[in-house]
Write a protein that binds this DNA or RNA. Structure first.
Lengths: 232, 232
DNA sequence: CAGTGGTCTAGACCACGAA
DNA sequence: TCGTGGTCTAGACCACTGG
């Protein structure tokens, strides 16, 4: 247990118990220095961590205050599909359904967000768990940014995994919605038409240049996303 | 631009450009100290931030390395519904549909995760935007933890907002799924039966004690969640 | 065993912003 | 104005762990 950690816990406990309500001014740094008998940098590190966690807000000259619980935000884990399938003890396989090279402008409108101008590799495929459909994926990879994708054989290998190992992304944006399975999707996933599916769309950039846009569709009854918020 | 920030950017740029691939050993702290002519604590702060962002991994005696891009994780914003409605310029209203006090054990099975034993306030209601249904919500509030909830008049006020201002939570867990609207839901939201809806479930604790479990259902075509990942 | 990162100290200067 | 937090320095000790 570091000193920093004990300072953090000390404050967290008072906030959690309700002893210090939102808006309450917590002790000044120099008071905590006196209370814990440590250097100011150590107190500062603890308070910085609490600030990052959203538990307190700090204002120069005024002090540090218990934050009013703001808009919920949480850390969402979006595992890649092969890892997810294998974690459940099943055999993963990717089945390529379609592949073509065409101008990015010919792709879905969502591609525009990536800002790509040249050609893109458009592909469709199915993620299988023990040979049963697990998710359907439609993806575009901008060949301006990832020219080597044109030469890759995606039969068997998930394009997401290949990209992940090839092009570390630096920015990503996700959009999560619910959609009814249309006829094509219900056939691909072997589910009844109209079944609610979770749609996860992801835009990926590296150093400001668009890399890929993908839309993955999961049967609503076979998949869910979980997110956890815990301070510090 | 602080020194810490310039060190971070220096390293981020090299990772983003692909110059330093995953697994590459970045300079030792003492080398960066020499390069930037600053104190070791400053370099340490920059590298700690990069570690938190998941861009590098650090091992004692071995050094710091560019992280292999791991399982995707993102920060998901889950705004509370009144704020969301008002942000879109519409008038918010909450319509209470049902309310009863009963043992927590009589509630949905998900309630068990909260670990509550005594009575709970069970309520159902509708979030309205300009008097049009926006989301349906079913909630249980553990009266052991929040006894004052029994006396509140939730007509007009969102119970989520009331709780947020009353009981700052310290831990929360979310589950996001897609479901088809059943008959009751389609009537409540005024949508066609079977329409795909986004279900957001949230468990909330304060200092280890369960506070509330809520399930909110949004028509899939009127709502989506977005999540953003950006390093540092 | 030797060198790394993890933590800490006891100072310092400064910008901001509440009073 | 002047106290606060934000940032930084130049040291120190230590636990861990790779070679």
């Amino acid at each position: 247990m570091t000193i920093e950690e004990s300072i953090r816990r000390h404050i967290e406990a008072r906030i959690a118990s309700g002893e210090w309500r939102p808006g309450h001014r917590i002790p000044f740094e120099h008071e905590l220095v006196a209370e814990f008998g440590c250097a100011r940098a150590t107190v500062g590190k603890a308070l910085a961590a609490l600030t990052r966690a959203g538990l307190i807000e700090r204002r120069r000259k005024a002090g540090s205050f218990v934050a009013r619980p703001h808009v919920q935000s949480a850390v969402l884990a979006i595992p890649d599909i092969p890892a997810m399938v294998e974690a459940s003890g099943k055999a993963y396989r990717f089945e390529l359904r379609a592949l073509r090279i065409a101008p990015a402008a010919d792709g879905p409108p969502e591609l525009a967000l990536l800002g790509g101008k040249g050609n893109a590799l458009h592909l469709e495929g199915l993620h299988l768990a023990d040979d049963a459909p697990f998710a359907f994926e439609r993806r575009a990879i901008l060949l301006d940014t990832v020219p080597e994708a044109a030469a890759v054989d995606f039969v068997g290998e998930s394009p997401g995994s290949w990209l992940l190992h090839q092009i570390p992304w630096t920015d990503a944006q996700h959009r999560i919605t619910a959609v009814n399975a249309d006829r094509a999707l219900s056939r691909a996933l072997d589910i009844s038409p109209g079944l609610a599916c979770l749609s996860v769309e992801r835009w990926t950039w590296r150093a400001g240049r668009g890399v890929t846009f993908v839309r993955q569709l999961f049967p609503g009854d076979r998949y869910d996303l979980t997110a956890v918020f815990t301070p510090s």
